[in-house]
């Protein structure tokens, strides 16, 4: 984690476990325990404020989810006939949704792209896959930077982006998308070139990092597994 040094493998495993647990849990209290666990992780990494700030944005969505699951769950594909439990069902589903959001946000704020790549590499994912993943992360970054600067230069030429009807606004984004597309193709070509110049080949099987698990890593992994298993299997 950016402020707390934890082995990237442990980090990926922790979030993988958390996601898995959240699919298997079946009671509101277990969901709540996992939410608290997640928030504790983000507090440890000093990003609690950021996570909470992002989660607040989703409150309207949670309210809608609560209403839908309470009153319209009979239309759902996953509907199990259980007439008296509708309000509880609604609360459970929206709590679980909230849990998914909390895990995702904690993951995003505590894990850098570099850690994800290192983690995957150290967990012996295929080299080509790890490399591809790294490249795409890098491209996302450069495309988003290009998007901002193209938007700025077109707005400076009098292109109005934030006014008018929705259709008009979408149409006004075309002069941004065209240069963005052209640039992305160009940068992909340059990337091919650069790979060639580094004599890139997939026969290189060397793993980049020699990571060692520390005590903290073990403790965190054990706590998450223990709390998660308790929440899922004991609090049914």
């Amino acid at each position: 984690m950016s402020n707390l040094s934890i082995d990237p493998r442990v980090k990926l495993s922790v979030f993988f476990l958390l996601f898995t647990f959240s699919f298997f849990l079946s009671s509101i209290s277990s969901a709540l325990i996992l939410i608290v666990l997640c928030l504790a992780i983000s507090a440890l990494d000093k990003v609690l404020k950021k996570v909470v700030r992002k989660l607040i944005i989703f409150i309207p969505m949670l309210v809608v989810a609560l209403l839908l699951w309470t009153f319209f769950s009979s239309f759902s594909l996953f509907y199990v006939k259980n007439e008296n439990m509708n309000i509880l069902n609604g609360v459970f589903m929206s709590t679980r949704l909230f849990l998914f959001l909390t895990i995702s946000m904690t993951f995003i704020f505590t894990t850098t792209p570099e850690e994800m790549i290192k983690g995957l590499d150290a967990l012996h994912f295929p080299k080509s896959l790890v490399f591809l993943f790294g490249l795409s992360l890098r491209e996302i970054d450069s495309v988003s930077r290009d998007f901002i600067s193209i938007k700025e230069s077109q707005a400076s030429r009098g292109l109005e982006l934030d006014k008018g009807s929705l259709v008009k606004r979408i149409r006004n984004h075309i002069p941004i998308l065209i240069p963005l597309l052209v640039r992305s193709v160009e940068s992909a070509e340059k990337l091919t070139l650069a790979m060639e110049l580094k004599a890139f080949n997939l026969s290189n099987k060397r793993r980049s990092s020699n990571l060692k698990l520390s005590k903290t890593d073990f403790i965190i992994l054990v706590i998450v597994t223990f709390v998660g298993l308790t929440a899922v299997f004991l609090l049914r």
Binding site: D146, E152, S153, R157, P175, V182
Partner: peptide
């Protein structure tokens, strides 16, 4: 009133 010409001209070719 104010126009800016950015450094990389390719970014605005549409």
């Amino acid at each position: 009133y104010v126009a800016i010409v950015f450094q990389d001209p390719e970014k605005q070719i549409t």
